[in-house]
Design a protein around this nucleic acid. Sequence first.
DNA 1: GCTGCAATGTAGCGATGATACACAGAAGCG
DNA 2: CGCTTCTGTGTATCATCGCTACATTGCAGC
Lengths: 252, 252
Amino acid sequence: MYHRYIAAKEASSAQRTRVLIIDAAADLLAASASGDFSTREVCDAAGVAAPTLYHHFGDKDGLLREVAADRFSRYLTRKQALEATGDPVEDFLRGWDMHVEFGVTNPALYTIMYGRPMDGRTGPADHAHAVLVTKMRDLERAGRLRIPAETAADMVASAAVGVTLHLIRTRAAADDHLSAIVRDAVTAAVISPPAVPGAPPVTPQLVRAAARLEAEMPHGPVGTLRASETTLLREWLAQLSALSSAAGGDPP
Amino acid sequence: MYHRYIAAKEASSAQRTRVLIIDAAADLLAASASGDFSTREVCDAAGVAAPTLYHHFGDKDGLLREVAADRFSRYLTRKQALEATGDPVEDFLRGWDMHVEFGVTNPALYTIMYGRPMDGRTGPADHAHAVLVTKMRDLERAGRLRIPAETAADMVASAAVGVTLHLIRTRAAADDHLSAIVRDAVTAAVISPPAVPGAPPVTPQLVRAAARLEAEMPHGPVGTLRASETTLLREWLAQLSALSSAAGGDPP
DNA sequence: GCTGCAATGTAGCGATGATACACAGAAGCG
DNA sequence: CGCTTCTGTGTATCATCGCTACATTGCAGC
């Protein structure tokens, strides 16, 4: 009746109804207290009938996934302009804050994305994780990562999701400092400090000595050092002994 | 018909049917792939009719909460005997591992407990968090906490839940080292080193290697290590190399 | 203009969470 | 024992839910 003129103007009518349904579902989801909606509500709000919804999204879960993906990517792209700092570490920190902020301001969508096991199909959470892995690879390429990029991405994702869900569950404010604390703790565990300011004096003897000590290190606590300290010590020794040749490193 | 005799033997018939329903729901939940069940399934499996279920648990959500609380507390008490170490730090680490293990082995229950916003009423997650806070207070009283106990509990809970949900979401194995890494990272950020440990195993080779590396250590930042880290590393190396004589033996 | 295809409305199915109502059996009391 | 009362349970049913078979509409290409 009426879509004809709109359809003729720009996008296909099908795409129009798609975004119509997605918008209606997102609005209902944001307004709902239970974090859920019925397909009938969505159809009524969007002005379409049930088969239209299922024709476009397959089932309710497909709609949920598309809504989450749409809103999440929209949120990211809207704030992406702020991520223009050349520093990958700064980008990483901003990415964390954006992630948490999105979750706190969109608890229903976030819970759908991260609060339940995957149902086989890939969702927006997988896409976000892929982006995170590339960010970690950037850091790795810049020599700022203590651990493999994939492991770092898993650590960061776990901690960020945990904090966000905790804030959602406890109804805590978004500006709570919990996110910052955990973020810094994870950062300290994942990201190494900038290469070296001056000229790092690393002699082959030091590297050999570090490798020797690393080989001698047992797995439990050593001497007066606690287990956690031993872990950190072993990690540092690995870094030092890995410096073998390319030690003198030159800043770009 | 038949419960009469059982009921007469010990507990009230009402309590019997309660645990009957809870067990049936837990079994169905563990067997279900979707992480959900229908009240009809539960009633059939428990051998009761629908009004009985609603008479005891109010609604489906009440049943879910009671099932989660029952299984979680059962899991904790079953493993609580292993938490007999006097060291509060060790207790904390074991608590973390137990938490993650429970989540990975009971993904459906865990998702119900932590994967969605609180619906006003208190659930098993709140109880678990209260236990965690008391543990953190123990650490605080032992002078092993860098930050307030409540903040530490929030950090630990966030990270542990995040890791567990990540493992559930990615279908990763329970023995994945991700949990250990995040756990150690959080531990390093929350717990301060101990006063004095016991008598750990130290080989003469390790002591010599530590002394050698200590001699090779320069004063500035070394390789990829920050200046502060280098300081700490040098300190630890001094501790290890000082173990030379009194190391292997244990003082009477 | 006719045909094929994608998109949409009408009507309804099966399953689900939840409930109104009545019955059963134990407890208390004469 | 008879009577009442209350908790616990079964029978039957409701409103809603996700979803779909089928018919209809509108638009593209020959």
